[in-house]
């Protein structure tokens, strides 16, 4: 049987891509192999590790748990784009400054998840940060620098807001 395929239209990082893909190909592989967004990392392919987290239509999603055909018409944002946006750049800078990453393989997913947390909960406790990020596996850090970086970003944003007010 020949490989069943469909053409899909994906808007990735504000740019539209029309690609024909096997039905069985998950979005993470399409982003990486067909479109070159290698900042999307594949760690487990069964939805446990969180490395492939991207934003689909504004909501964080594991791109290994979505087939490309399901994402037809969706707007997708990956770390390559999000890390350069003003809404997340401070978080990225703090991750680097606080050494909240070592091998870096979890980092794109971790940063995108942490950004979503801060969007939902601008003033989290350390426990809330840990709970929210507990779907993102990091084998290198002790998670502490990650929690520190998120807390410092939140504090920095509060301070910036205070200055403006």
């Amino acid at each position: 049987m020949s490989e069943p395929r469909q053409s899909v239209s994906l808007t990735v990082n504000e740019e539209r891509h029309d690609v024909t893909v096997p039905n069985r190909k998950h979005l993470a592989d399409i982003l990486r192999e067909d479109l070159g967004f290698t900042g999307v990392h594949v760690g487990c392919e069964h939805g446990v590790c969180g490395a492939c987290t991207v934003r689909i239509d504004g909501a964080i999603t594991r791109s290994c748990l979505v087939f490309g055909v399901q994402a037809d018409g969706a707007e997708i944002e990956t770390i390559e784009y999000l890390s350069a946006q003003s809404e997340t750049r401070d978080l990225v800078d703090t991750f680097v400054a606080e050494n909240a990453l070592q091998c870096g393989f979890c980092t794109p997913g971790m940063v995108i998840s942490a950004a979503a947390l801060l969007a939902e909960t601008p003033d989290p406790t350390r426990e809330e940060v840990r709970a929210y990020l507990s779907g993102n596996y990091c084998r290198c850090t002790g998670y502490q620098a990650i929690v520190d970086a998120v807390m410092m970003t939140a504090a920095g944003r509060r301070a910036a807001k205070g200055e403006r007010a």
Binding site: R32, F37, T38, G39, V40, H41, V42, T78, I79, E80, S83, A84, V92, F95, V96, A97, N99, L101, C103, G104, F105, T107, P108, V111
Partner: peptide, 19 residues
């Protein structure tokens, strides 16, 4: 000192083998 690689990794510009 912060790490150059960390900056690369946090912006999705790692160069892992499968990349």
């Amino acid at each position: 000192a912060p790490r150059e690689r960390a900056r690369r990794f946090a912006t999705g510009r790692g160069r892992y083998t499968d990349d």
